[in-house]
Simulated assay, not measured.
Amino acid sequence: MNVVARPRKVRVIAGIVAVILLAAFTVAGLLMLRTHTGAYFTLSDQLAMIGIGLFLAAGALWFTRPRVRADADGVEVRNLLGARHFPWTEVEQVSFPDGSPWARLELPHDEYVPVVAIQAIDGEHAVTAMRELRRIRREAGTPAEHG
Rank of each mutant, 00 (worst) to 15 (best):
M1R: 06
N2C: 12
N2L: 15
N2S: 15
N2G: 08
V3E: 10
V4H: 08
A5S: 07
R6V: 14
R6T: 12
R8D: 01
V10A: 13
V10K: 08
R11G: 15
V12A: 12
V12F: 11
A14M: 01
I16R: 03
I16K: 00
V17M: 10
V17K: 00
V17R: 02
V19F: 06
I20G: 05
L21V: 06
L22G: 00
A24H: 05
A24F: 09
A24N: 02
F25Q: 00
A28V: 08
L30R: 07
M32D: 12
M32E: 13
R34F: 11
R34C: 05
G38H: 02
Y40T: 15
Y40Q: 15
T42R: 08
T42G: 08
T42I: 06
L43Y: 07
S44I: 15
D45S: 04
Q46Y: 03
L47N: 03
A48W: 02
G51I: 10
G51F: 05
I52F: 12
G53E: 07
F55G: 11
L56M: 11
G59D: 00
G59N: 04
A60M: 08
F63A: 12
F63V: 11
F63R: 08
T64S: 06
P66I: 03
P66T: 04
R69I: 10
R69W: 12
D71L: 05
D71G: 10
D73T: 14
G74F: 01
G74C: 01
V77G: 00
R78T: 15
N79I: 10
A83C: 08
W88D: 08
E90S: 11
E90I: 02
Q93W: 02
Q93G: 07
S95H: 04
F96W: 03
P97K: 07
D98N: 11
G99S: 00
P101H: 01
W102L: 05
R104N: 04
L105C: 04
E106L: 12
L107C: 01
P108N: 05
D110L: 14
Y112N: 15
Y112M: 11
P114M: 11
Q119H: 07
A120R: 13
A120M: 11
I121C: 07
I121P: 01
E124H: 10
E124C: 02
E124G: 04
A126D: 10
A126V: 07
A126N: 06
V127K: 09
V127R: 10
T128F: 00
A129R: 07
M130L: 14
M130C: 05
R131M: 09
R131F: 05
R131D: 14
R137G: 10
R137C: 03
R138M: 09
R138F: 06
R138T: 14
E139L: 10
A140F: 01
A144T: 12
